[in-house]
Design a protein around this nucleic acid. Sequence first.
DNA 1: TCCATATTTCCACGATACTGGAAATATGGA
DNA 2: TCCATATTTCCAGTATCGTGGAAATATGGA
Lengths: 111, 111
Amino acid sequence: MESKLALSQLSALAQENRLAVFRLLVKAGHDGLPAGDIAAALGVPPNTLSSQLNILSNAGLVEGNRQGRSIIYTANYDAISGLIVFLMEDCCQGREEVCSPVMAAAQSACC
Amino acid sequence: MESKLALSQLSALAQENRLAVFRLLVKAGHDGLPAGDIAAALGVPPNTLSSQLNILSNAGLVEGNRQGRSIIYTANYDAISGLIVFLMEDCCQGREEVCSPVMAAAQSACC
DNA sequence: TCCATATTTCCACGATACTGGAAATATGGA
DNA sequence: TCCATATTTCCAGTATCGTGGAAATATGGA
């Protein structure tokens, strides 16, 4: 049952603050951001953010590495692309109606 | 802020039963399935299923149309592909790391 | 060693979600 | 009209989630 992971990832992203955190980390790129900066950017107390980061981290969507006093969080691109592929293949069974618009978007967005 | 819809869709899919309902409806194709059959397939009481269908429906992921005594539910392919595109473009900013695997999956899955 | 900084863990409160019983609504057939 | 079927709405109980104060932990520097 591979959908257990997908479920935890959907769950993690299905919340305003956490989606915002993830988007911020994507924008930040491979360098990532320290937890404190994320908290400041979102206007959330550090302990609250910490539990949200923990949920994203358990879902494999972000990763944290200590660097000095800070912990630098980065988005996990493999995880999000895995989720997207799950939605396309396992969930939607590669249906043409789903695939085609995604393909078009992929082409115009980056590929 | 277009992400409000995406959030409600992520939320709707972030639950075991509802994800199962959606997958079942995708498998059922354009003919869809009556609510009763879905409830039976998942082993969920009809009123419980009804509220779950309602959540999926409010998120635009499924649609119900009365046909005689039954209400036939169908998956909304536009909605799910819209969500996938949102994750790729708005959320992940068309990053190559996200796009490429999705592109590859799309190619092998259907296109 | 002592202190400041960065983050997490512990804990509890309020809010929201999931579930299913009971009753209501809608449809079709006798 | 009356009844059976299909589904929804109403409602309440339990569980899970989101939040943030207070304390704990980890690191680096003086």
